[in-house]
Amino acid sequence: MDVVFAIFTAILILGGAAFALVAAIGLNRFPDVYSRMHAASKAGTVGSGLLLLAVGVHSGELSVLARALAGFFFFVLTAPVSAHLLAIAALKAGYSMSDKTVTNEME
């Protein structure tokens, strides 16, 4: 039983860390701010969220798991808000999109 919990925790840890790494790589590979936000707001959130869940599972206590879940919910709820705010601020301030942009129906 212990081993099952440990393996589950290990999967959560590695998955979370891998997503965080992927988000960081995406942050460096994407061409402009707006596409970088995709990487940071999705893969990054899932990464830290999975790591928090790993703590909850690892402790084996319900109260700790509930707190970890609350933290996970909190991150998932705030990530799109901050990404959206940043995107609209950058757009209104006039930061340009990359040359690869194919459509812009906003004008």
């Binding site: 690869k100 942009t101 906003m106």
Partner: peptide, 9 residues
């Protein structure tokens, strides 16, 4: 990576 980013309505 051949991205085609854009904004649609």
């Amino acid at each position: 990576m051949d991205l085609k980013p854009g904004i649609f309505a």
